[in-house]
Design a protein around this nucleic acid. Sequence first.
DNA 1: GTGGTTGCAAAGACTTTGCACGCTA
DNA 2: TAGCGTGCAAAGTCTTTGCAACCAC
Lengths: 199, 199
Amino acid sequence: MKQATIRKAFETFLREHSLKLTPQRMRILDRAFETHEHFTAEELYGWLRDEGGSSVSRATVYRTLSMLVDGGFLESLDSGRGELLYEHVMGHRHHDHLLCIDCGKIEEFTDERIEALQKEVCEARGFELVDHDLRLQGYCRSCSLKRTRENKKRPDPLNVQAERERSAGASTDGGGGKSARRSLGRGGAAKSAARKSKR
Amino acid sequence: MKQATIRKAFETFLREHSLKLTPQRMRILDRAFETHEHFTAEELYGWLRDEGGSSVSRATVYRTLSMLVDGGFLESLDSGRGELLYEHVMGHRHHDHLLCIDCGKIEEFTDERIEALQKEVCEARGFELVDHDLRLQGYCRSCSLKRTRENKKRPDPLNVQAERERSAGASTDGGGGKSARRSLGRGGAAKSAARKSKR
DNA sequence: GTGGTTGCAAAGACTTTGCACGCTA
DNA sequence: TAGCGTGCAAAGTCTTTGCAACCAC
C-alpha cells in the first residue's frame, strides 16, 4: 500500500527526535504495516526470524514496537487473554473491537454515536478525554451459529456462569460472565508497561 | 454492608461446585468486599498479611481471586497500566471506567445509551454480545485543571513524544499522550492466563 | 476418612535492561 | 568520529503450578 508514505512519516519522526534510521527499525515498521491483523511482539519477532533476511533481535522488536506506539504509528491493545496486541493505526482511523471469546477472532467497528456519547459523559464530569478503549466480547457470527446449532455444547468454562446468574442474583440483563475464558486454575494476568508510574 | 448476604451467596456457590469453605477463602472474600476501590491481587495479599490474623499465602490469594471472578463475585479489569485490577460486582450494577492517566484515579460511570448502541452494533453484525469493557482514558477534573493552570502541553496525537522527551528529564511529568507512561524504562509485562489457548 | 486446599518455592510467560560492539548521521 | 542502536542473555514482574501436609465435610 502506501508504504512509502508511512516510511516517510517514520523517517520524519525519527529525525525530529534525533533517533536513527536503522535497517532493523525499518524492517519492523514494514512488517508491522504489512499485516492487517493484530499481532503480538512475539509473533512479529517470529515472522521476521522465519522470513529470513537480516536478523532482528527480540529486544529490538520490543523496543521498536514500543517506540512505534509512542510515535502514534501503532496502537496497542490488551486482548484480554493475556497478550498485548499491536495494530497499525495510520490510514484507518480509530476503531473499537469485537472479540470472539470462542475462536478469538477480532473484528473492528466504529460508531460515531458512541464516540459522541463518550465525549458527552466526559464533559459532564470535567474529565479531559484523551483516548478510549472499547471492547465488546461475545461470539462472532459463525461461532454464534455453531453454538445455536449444537445447542447443548456450552463453551463450558466450567459452566460457572449459569450458577452465578442464579446465586449471585446477578440482576438485570443477562450480560453474562466476563470471565468466560479464564476459568479456574489459570486465572489471568495482564500487565503491560508503565509499572514505573505505579505508585 | 450486606456482608452476610454475600457470604451466603459465596457459600452457596461453593456448595454447588463441591468446593470447600475454608477460612482463607472467607477472609479473602470479606476483604475484597470490604474495599470499594479497585485492587490488585498483590495489594489484597499485602492487606491480609499486614492486617495480621490467620495467614493466607500468595498462591491462595491468586487462586481464590480467580475463583471469585469465575463465580461472578468479582470482576477483573485491566487498568491499562499493566496491572490487573479486581473489584467486587455484587450490589452495584455494571459500569464502565474513566481512568486518569496522570494520577491514576479511576471513576466509574454508566450510560444506558452507550450500552444500547453497543447492542445495536452487535446485532447488526450477528455478533452475540456477552460482555463489554469500555475504558476512557484522560485527565480527571483535578488533574485537568492542574494542567490548564500550569499551561501544560497539549496531548498531540502524533507528537506527544516531543513533549515527552523533554519533560522526561524535568520529570514532574505533565503527562503526555496515551502512552505517556509506557516509554522508556521498565515497561511492563503482559501475560496472563489463557495462554493455554494460545495456539 | 477422603478428596479438595493450602503453602512454599520453583517454574513460566512476556518484556525489559546492562553491556560491549557496530553502524548511522 | 561520536553516539545511538543492536544483540545477547540475564533480570524482572506478576501469576501459576507441583507436591506433601492439612483440613473441611
